[in-house]
Design a protein around this nucleic acid. Structure first.
Lengths: 240, 240
DNA sequence: ATAATAGTGTCTGTAAGACATTATGCC
DNA sequence: GGCATAATGTCTTACAGACACTATTAT
């Protein structure tokens, strides 16, 4: 009991080590809808959840992966070609029961990217509804996705995260649109703009987006890839 | 490359599995000061960081631990005797370099408890200053502690977390004190009380705390062990 | 009465919500 | 001019900050 912290004076048996993986929840907005990237699991009988849809991810490779984050970045780049996404850790899930091959722990990241030109082998976008997704995913990936979604929606209330779903240059209406798609409710334009300017989030570029109507000013982030925090949430949640 | 998600059609070699541990950052308030629980690492030459101070934690035991959270609870109970703490995951840290014994990943939880009657073997409280701690801890535990501290301080701005540092019954002044100790700045009494009542956080009990002055109403949480979110932070942070 | 802490009231400031109004391009 | 969307303005509301004031016990 005193040696609880130690490895009982002998090396921990490798067989007694949990499996270690990284999963990435990659979000983008397509067609006014939040989407998550899924992959099909290999269809061999030796694999658990063969042929099912799953979050992109896999075991940590102790040779090639320096740390968890670079492992997540590698997987994301393989599936989307994106090299500098917004990436944030959601947390980790581990236990006896989540993988039939044995005690396993997975480290979950979520990422926001603009729609990429094309996807890697076997990757598809799945649109997300108000109540998440109905598709049954492999392992406990429905739980992981739900957690990432909850984190995203909660942070969207008071941060600039949705800007990372857009290309470098965008109009304020496009930015507002990203918020509305994720929160699934309309926002007041006036309040939205005041908040964005007060937070010193964007700088105008010398360009205009034209269309069948009044052209809009284009902006870009003042600090690309750094999330900005607003002083309040959009509509203060009732603390029931 | 297509088989990235699989284990390349053979079982992953156990030796290729990272070490998996759980560490717990246990906070309490003693003597108007935030404290963190540390343990001394065993002083054998076979152990890395022998004799140094570290966060309580250790390897996951695939036999006895059902999942990560119960592993964290077990370690917490061993050191403090507390069975129903506030417990929240901070995140996970993993990489080649953080443990000389090999690629390792740790899952970090933080916990808030009232001062326990006594501590387990080799456990001590270390007071935390405005800028964290100066003691050099084992492994990357200074980083983990810093992350937990940042999470705590940030959530204290807009949640009821500090209530979990107190016994079941407490006065509003005592609760405010917990906030002030963690944030290391005074709060307005009037605003504080309004906020607590508006959030419907507490209910009065039919008791009074007496002293050398006007007695104070005792309260208890309406929903023990559930954190409540306030609609705003205490003092809105400047967004830059 | 005095000290000490509990508890309330009033006024101000900040940022969001609601909604109306004006501006500017294309057809 | 008409339409569509961009951009701004005004008024209200919610809640925190500052600070003064009152209340209740022990000594």
């Amino acid at each position: 009991m005193k040696q609880e912290n130690s490895i009982q004076n002998k090396k921990i048996l490798p067989e007694a080590r949990p499996l270690t993986s990284v999963d990435v929840v990659i979000f983008t907005v397509l067609d006014d809808r939040l989407n998550v990237l899924l992959v099909i699991r290999p269809n061999t009988t030796e694999e658990p959840f063969a042929g099912m849809q799953a979050l992109p991810g896999g075991f940590v490779n102790v040779e090639s992966d320096a740390d968890l984050e670079s492992c997540a970045l590698r997987k994301l780049h393989q599936k989307t070609g994106v090299k500098t996404p917004y990436l944030e850790q959601v947390g980790s899930w581990g236990g006896k029961a989540r993988d039939p091959r044995g005690w396993s722990a997975t480290h979950v990241y979520f990422s926001l990217i603009p729609p990429p030109d094309r996807l890697g082998e076997g990757a598809v976008w799945l649109p997300i509804g108000e109540h998440g997704i109905k598709t049954r995913l492999a392992f406990d990936h429905n739980v992981l996705l739900e957690a990432a979604l909850q984190r995203l929606r909660s942070k969207v209330e008071y941060t600039s995260l949705p800007a990372f779903l857009l290309p470098d240059e965008f109009t304020l209406s496009e930015l507002q649109q990203m918020y509305e798609v994720i929160l699934e409710r309309p926002l007041e334009k006036s309040a939205f703009r005041t908040r964005v300017f007060a937070a010193d989030l964007v700088k105008p570029v010398n360009k205009i987006r034209t269309g069948n109507n009044r052209p809009a000013q284009l902006y870009r982030l003042k600090h690309p890839r750094k999330a900005v925090f607003f002083p309040r949430t959009f509509s203060p949640r009732k603390s029931d």
